[in-house]
Design a protein around this nucleic acid. Structure first.
Length: 425
RNA sequence: GUGGGCGUAGCUCAGCUGGUAGAGCUCCGGGUUGUGGUCUCGGCGGUCGCGGGUUCGAAUCCCGUCGCUCACCCCA
């Protein structure tokens, strides 16, 4: 061995074995649920113009301020590995003129995202999210359906004890007025706030509700509540969303202190949390972002969506085990010959392998130079039904399930295996 | 960026107060002049994260450094 071992970068991981199976199961369920509700799959580029996130996600967010993987390409363009999925989807909506399609346009994705953060349980630098976005309608039914779908996905993935918190951030003038009142309250009590919150009074005062700092929490107990100051339209919209969720039998709690980390949210916001997760309790969340498409240069278009962290869903849930691929026929060799060498027997075995696959069987061939005992052991371990031991003149075909075996001409092996499998069925 | 815990075979770990490394699992092979899942025996496999220091001697003590991990922060 020479040279230093190169390891996967901090905060990244290889997906293999059981993990890969669980992910496939999740993707499978997500597709069934979302496409059943009219969502179509979308994949956007892994990197975008930096400007998209600066404008879309918002310059007050931690994501834009310190968590983006930004690089300059050969021609001097500033590009950023996507830290989230909503802005790219909105960009695609505008770029492809989807406002001409029947609204709402419903899109879903399962992709990886990148944020420069310290990794910990449930938090990584490259992570995966499944997300759904519905653009072009401000109907409360869109909000409710969206939330119901994520709830269904979490349920099917075995995420127990998921709590749903719900709120409304309002919109327009009332929201601006509220923001100023809150800033006033914060400034009046500035000496009791944590340093982080103090720094954010101008940028994002709502974040103060999220603080775990004691002094800050005391100040926030007396702070004005946004929910008490919504516009009549927003009040009505929020009431409709709640009514629809009630009708769907979805349990939730209204939490006026629920704030989300991205600037684009308006009106409905929600989050599913689970205690099974450690410090990172958020499994998935989202909300309405009625101004985002316009902010990205498109027509005024309402939008509603969510994202759930794959790693967190898997951590909090108990996904159904993925069954391994059955192997109908394992093709072994009677005469091992030299390791890595060519032989007539090997060629005959390879021919059987091809023939078996053409006949619709799943088949594998001995490629490690194992002994006869080793080959049978291996075939058994991978769950093969039949083993063929190919010899110079004839071939032994053994049924591993009942131990029966017969010797037959090599070119009859696949037929015999097929016949054996048919008898089983 | 800050703090705690941890870094010994591919994996899980043992190795007390210093005497230059072990187990289980996995993998491969033997036990069966060719036949699997049990059992049994054996083999492959380790610069004890890295660098320095103390010592006759360090995986074991000290310092530094890197990495992993959990937490703060923030979020999915």
């Amino acid at each position: 061995m020479s040279g230093e071992r190169i390891k996967a970068p901090r905060g990244t991981f290889d997906v293999l074995g059981e993990q890969a199976g669980m992910r496939m199961a999740l993707e499978d369920r997500a597709r069934a649920i979302l496409e059943g509700a009219g969502y179509e799959r979308i994949e956007t580029p892994a990197f975008e113009a930096t400007e998209l996130f600066a404008r879309g996600v918002g310059s007050s967010t931690d994501i834009v301020r310190k968590e983006m993987y930004t690089l300059t390409d050969g021609s001097g363009r500033s590009l950023t590995l996507r830290p989230e999925g909503t802005a790219p989807v909105c960009r695609a909506y505008v770029e492809h003129g989807m406002h001409k399609q029947p609204q709402p346009v419903k899109l879903w994705y399962l992709s990886s995202f990148f944020r420069y953060e310290r990794a910990q349980k449930g938090r990584f630098r490259q992570f995966w999210q499944v997300g759904a976005e519905a653009l072009g309608s401000d109907d409360p039914a869109v909000d409710a359906e969206s939330i119901v779908l994520l709830g269904a996905l979490l349920d099917e993935m075995g995420v127990r004890e998921a709590r749903l918190r719900l709120s409304s951030l309002g919109s327009g003038e009332s929201r601006r007025r509220y923001r100023e009142r809150l800033q006033g309250h914060l400034r009046a009590n500035e000496q009791n706030l944590s340093a982080e919150v103090r720094e954010r009074i101008e940028l994002n005062p709502l974040r103060a509700f999220d603080s775990a700092h004691e002094g800050t929490m005391a100040v926030m107990r007396d702070a004005p509540r946004l929910l008490d100051e919504l516009d009549p339209d927003d009040v009505e919209h929020f009431a409709a969303v709640r009514e629809l969720l009630d009708r769907a039998g979805v349990a939730y709690e209204v939490d006026a202190t629920l704030v989300r980390g991205l600037d684009y949210y308006t009106r409905t916001v929600f989050e599913f949390t689970s205690d099974a997760l450690g410090a990172q309790s958020g499994v998935g969340g989202g909300g309405r972002y009625d101004g985002l498409v316009e902010q990205l240069g498109g027509p005024a278009t309402p939008g509603m969506g969510w994202a759930a962290g794959i790693e967190r869903v898997l951590l909090a849930g108990s996904p159904p085990p993925a069954g391994g691929q059955a192997v109908d026929l394992y093709v072994g060799l009677a005469d091992l010959g030299e390791a890595g060498s060519f032989s007539g027997v090997k060629a005959a075995a390879f021919e059987i392998l091809s023939e078996a696959r053409s006949a619709g069987l799943t088949a594998q061939m001995e490629m490690a130079g194992r002994s006869l005992k080793g080959q049978l052991g291996h075939a058994d371990r991978i769950g093969a039904r039949f083993v063929a031991i190919v010899g110079e003149r004839e071939t032994l075909l053994k049924d591993l399930q009942n131990g029966r075996q017969e010797t037959l001409a090599t070119d009859k092996v696949v037929h015999a295996a097929l016949r054996g499998l048919r008898e089983l069925a």
